[in-house]
Design a binder for these strands. Structure first.
Lengths: 227, 227
DNA sequence: CATTTATGTGTACTGTTTACACAAAGGTAC
DNA sequence: GTACCTTTGTGTAAACAGTACACATAAATG
């Protein structure tokens, strides 16, 4: 079988973090040309799967390890990169505060977090890729418990609430939000409280992943719907 | 920039049709080796986008033109094809009864429809790809009006109802289904009736795509939820 | 013309979503 | 230490959406 195809395949990661009530994205500065900011990513090696490629590139370029990763979309326009034809398989990754810190022992010195609504000029079609990633996050947060991946293991309800409000960009009723989330039975109260400045201390909760998987098996479906 | 990457990129299409109250899938018989059945698809040409590649391959291999097409998932395992490393971008396609007929003027003589629950042995990981496609169809039919793409332009309500029941593999209440669908205001009554054997003739309806797009713009969201 | 088959229609019940306000726990400023 | 500020925690009534359910209508068939 002879195929003369001159296309290279790469992976790129849209990595979201949640910090200071903002959705942030992890970008790296290119080392060549205009030194534009770009998504972490790179060419797939002959002997690794796509998933392996993203994980490797993320580690090499930023030092972080995502605690959620899913394939997003494959971008295959003919003029994405002016140098040669590159098809890129984009991934969506979520990082929690523990993994948020960029380890300096790698190439990570060129990596930086940006507010999703205040992005620099981006290389290639990376702006489009980010848009698709954000859309996916917005949609998915409503029907899969992926929001927890952006929070600490133990978190006050207000964090969860703010996270949803930030991502969905709308105000939610505190009482109804809490009631709904608790009704699923996938949140576990801890006996710890968190004090931040003034105000009543907040009870900390944990996401009970095991319980969620169990319920899911039995046909339970996480779903939030607020006007 | 030098990259030594020895990977080829292909596209494959999971093409669904609806016939005799069955979900069917379009497969082609391979011309080499064990002549197994496989999804229509092939290698991407250097100067075409991924979408263009699927459309071209579908036409060449089966003579059909999908009236709905969306990217599904990219399969990048290292051992998909024993001959060489191939990464495949899979697409989901829907065909309506008008396009259902395989035109014999092409390579289509090797193409055939199969009941989705009665598949032959399949090449590569195509069985997995079909599973992903079916899952997507099942999920998406609930929140996007893609079911209509599988029906004639004018259809009786019972067709729509059977389509949903077949795809979701569960019985739906006729009255509630009709009430819900009509409540959206995206179905247009025609003044035509369809008689099939005995029984009261059924009024024919049309999907009003323009109206749907209009409503969608104003924040309307197609959504079906039945126990 | 009696029987069979498929279409077409309404209502009461149940569960879910929404809107909404005040008490409790702690901090801060005087 | 007390008045005030800030944040957390909680219930209920009204509106809406989903569910369960049965009989009349239009045609074909024998």
């Amino acid at each position: 079988m002879k195929i003369t195809q001159n296309i290279k395949i790469a992976v790129d990661a849209v990595v979201f973090g949640y910090h200071n009530n903002q959705i942030q994205i992890l970008l790296i500065q290119q080392k060549f040309g205009k030194k534009q900011w770009a998504l972490p990513g790179g060419f797939v090696l002959d002997k690794e799967t796509l998933d392996e490629a993203v994980i490797r590139e993320l580690k090499e370029e930023t030092g972080v390890k995502a605690n959620y990763l899913e394939q997003l979309y494959t971008f295959g326009a003919t003029q994405r990169d002016e140098r040669l034809r590159v098809i890129s398989v984009a991934y969506l990754a979520l990082i929690n505060p523990n993994n948020y810190i960029l380890k300096a022992d790698t190439d990570a010195k060129d990596a930086q977090w940006f507010d999703i609504y205040d992005l620099p000029e981006l290389a290639f079609d990376h702006k489009d890729i980010i848009a698709v990633g954000l859309e996916r996050l917005k949609a998915k947060i409503n029907y899969q418990p992926i929001g927890f991946e952006l929070l600490n293991t133990k978190f006050p309800f207000s964090d969860l609430e703010n996270l949803y409000q930030t991502i969905l960009n709308k105000k939610l009723d505190r009482r109804n939000f809490r009631k709904k989330l608790l009704s699923f039975g996938i949140l576990q109260e801890t006996d710890q409280y968190q004090k931040v400045g003034s105000g009543r201390p907040a009870k900390l909760f944990k996401f009970n992943k095991k319980k969620y998987k169990e319920l899911e098996q039995n046909g339970f479906h996480f779903e939030i719907k607020f006007a």
